[in-house]
Design a protein around this nucleic acid. Sequence first.
DNA 1: ATTAAAACCACATAATTATGTGATGCCTTT
DNA 2: AAAGGCATCACATAATTATGTGGTTTTAAT
Lengths: 210, 210
Amino acid sequence: MTRLLIYEDNPQLREGLTMLINGSDGFEVLSAFKNCNNVEDEVRAFKPDVILMDIDMPGTNGIEGLKKIREIDTDVKILMLTVFDDNKNVFDAISNGANGYVLKKTPPARLLEYIQEAQTGGAPMTSSIATQVLKMFSSLNNEKGQDYDLSEREKQVLQLLVNGYSYKMIAAEMFIAIDTVRSHIKKIYEKLHVNSKSEAVAKAFRNKIV
Amino acid sequence: MTRLLIYEDNPQLREGLTMLINGSDGFEVLSAFKNCNNVEDEVRAFKPDVILMDIDMPGTNGIEGLKKIREIDTDVKILMLTVFDDNKNVFDAISNGANGYVLKKTPPARLLEYIQEAQTGGAPMTSSIATQVLKMFSSLNNEKGQDYDLSEREKQVLQLLVNGYSYKMIAAEMFIAIDTVRSHIKKIYEKLHVNSKSEAVAKAFRNKIV
DNA sequence: ATTAAAACCACATAATTATGTGATGCCTTT
DNA sequence: AAAGGCATCACATAATTATGTGGTTTTAAT
């Protein structure tokens, strides 16, 4: 038996969801609330398996509710409900430990499947939401800016700078004179348009050169 | 009519998929191959809507095949097939522009739905795969290590260091004496266990203090 | 063959950074 | 009331870094 709590401000939808779920074998709605004002107490009291959480609610919105719940319970499965596949909310929901993210227009049969999947450790997502997630994901990992035409040797030096090496240590590490290290670094600064070690290090991180 | 290419080294599965899809209204398998050796030519020749790509193939594996295809065609939808929800492959597939990622054990009816969803811009994923993705995602963004008990003022100073400010500039920016800046920085070094500006900057980035 | 870039080295000087030792006032916790 | 952390400032010195000028040699491109 999957035991649920529902948070949804729209009375029709709240009633509809409750009826649908209670009318299905293996599911039971413990209670349904119209806001998240006392979400911590409610979750503690009912100990549900799965929570359906509307994103757009007056007062404490769904993301806030999600955060509150995650502070006191990291296990309960939380399925976010929304009308839009809104980029910002998807990101926030995922970052804060939502287990799934589905559109409200999901057909009832599908929704029950999603609930079940969430309970068994899956991460059900409407495929349009999944698209958003993948886009964010690949953009996060593929934007590795320019490499500023650093030569191999210059990249090595920059890498060592990033690792906190002094000129002297770099010279020893690379078996070259300290003046050569200076030369390389001067060239690196020109190419990166900076004029200090820490700026170079910062730029290296920001542009994922290292 | 959704037109597909299939890449799958296992003859039984290849045949099975072809039969299944060809036997379904609205789907047509243009051709099925046992490896990706000539994937570019084949994609160019057939111009499919969707490609089913097995991950684990001898020779050019599915990830390599994916990369090859994406070099010549960024629009065709590519659905990765795999037996395991293997972390590393999921990551690579997503980073390289796969449109979906489903387990081979997906029931036939579901698979057809997934193909359709992929074609219409969705990102179908077996929910266990989606779980992986969400985990990677939130680990990427939530691991903000310790904050090393930096005071507010120290955080400000560190922030300015990261932005490439010199002591003099920090003093001006914060309306304090340069010696005070030194004090703060000395304390910061102690707390971060470093002893140079660039190490502090690097640590700030690595631990997402800034 | 000439050019250009990269990699290497040297000397010199100015600026910045690192480190130590003190000191004062404020606020919070004990 | 005392203790500790925080924020502020001062003076001094050593070390490191930034910058300029000027080289040689090797390698790759035109």
